[in-house]
Amino acid sequence: MTVLGHGILELILIIIMTFGLKDFFSKPTVAGFIGLFGGAFLAWMGYRMIKSGINKSVSLESQRAGNSAGVRNLALAGALVSATNPYFILWWASTGMESIRQSYALGLNGVLFFFMGHIFSDFVWYTAISTAFSRGKKLISDTVYRWIILLLGIFIIAFSIYFIGSGWKMLQM
């Protein structure tokens, strides 16, 4: 239910970006800066993930969430937590916007498939994390978790290079 709330908020953002701002964001200069900024933000995220994996500063124990027993509407809580998370806002203002811009090159179907893939990946990721939290160290060790974070950080760095390259090409037009 929490991921549903998160997804509804993302759907609203995608609709606004696709229909309300698509002409503005399709301008080469704007698209180029979004690509550069989004790529730089992804590179920073990837670097932090790699650093935390190497320094062993990330663990399942330190990631445990507080008790949410008082929350009656988990979907609303998911939307509110996402909307107030500065990383969520930064991601959508940079990397998310660039993803929407690139997926719109395939028309509305491209945006729809991006959204479906993005929401599915959110659902899979948060399901895995909540399962890991509920089952504790029986399911995944801190070492395995650190390796996952490290490998995902490397993947994000590679993705950032693609966005930076795309942004640079757009600025050269």
Rank of each mutant, 00 (worst) to 15 (best):
T2K: 12
L4F: 15
G7V: 14
I8G: 11
I8Q: 09
I8V: 14
I8P: 10
L9Q: 07
L11V: 15
I12A: 10
L13T: 11
L13G: 13
T18K: 01
F19Y: 08
F19V: 02
D23H: 11
F24I: 04
A31S: 08
I34C: 06
F37P: 01
G39S: 01
L42R: 07
L42D: 06
G46S: 05
K51N: 14
K51A: 15
S52P: 10
K56M: 13
S57K: 15
L60V: 09
E61N: 11
Q63D: 03
Q63T: 00
R64G: 00
R64A: 01
S68A: 14
V71R: 13
A79I: 05
A83T: 06
Y87K: 11
I89R: 05
W92E: 06
S94F: 05
S94N: 02
T95K: 00
E98F: 06
L106G: 03
G107M: 01
F113N: 04
F115I: 09
F120P: 14
D122Q: 15
Y126I: 13
S130V: 01
T131C: 02
F133C: 00
S134N: 12
G136V: 08
I140Q: 02
D142F: 07
T143W: 11
W147V: 07
W147Q: 05
W147S: 04
L150M: 12
L150G: 08
L151H: 03
L152V: 04
G153N: 02
G153K: 04
I154L: 09
I154P: 06
I154F: 08
S166L: 08
K169D: 10
K169T: 10
